[in-house]
Amino acid sequence: MAATATLPHGREVDSSHAARRVRINRLGLWLFLASDGALFALFAASRFYIAGTAISPHLNQLLGLGITSLLLLSSFTAYRAETAFTHGNTSHGRMMLLATVLMGLMFFGGVVYEWSIAEFSPSEAYGTAFFSMTGMHAFHVVTGVFFLLLMWARSGDGKFTGGTNAWPIAAAVIYWHFVDVVWVFFYPTLYLLK
């Protein structure tokens, strides 16, 4: 079915039309993430410009560690989902998508809770950084959850199963990992400095 070409290393590469399309989409997605990443990076840099490395003593460190672990775990389930779909295992993939969505929502809930109990205001230097950075990240979490849910809803008939068909799933999952990568940098930036 799929046309293949063999590279010098003996590795087979799919050169079908569908694979070509995935390659194009993949580059587009990565460029988008790079661009989006620049926005996050600018906010992270601004945090040091206005507040130095100071953090608020009122931060709930355990809550921070908790939601961070949750997001990391959701990246793992997202990986499981994508791997399952690519290998034709739709039912496991869908379950893992749901698990990812659930943890994403819990993460979002954690952020909302943290905002509601925060004992510092957005008008302080640190608060400015904290609320703007977590807010922007939470917005990306919500859009990520939306894409994952969309994928879950549409994957029931098996049209995203196997090889290049799984690209829409892979795209949503790559986006989700990106949201996690951002948090990998935001977590120490916002919580772990002194």
Partner: peptide, 16 residues
């Protein structure tokens, strides 16, 4: 949103 990116009194800076 009442943040202070550029409010000098709160540690913000227009130069940012």
């Amino acid at each position: 949103a009442n943040t202070s990116f550029f409010h000098a009194a709160e540690g913000g800076s227009p130069i940012l």
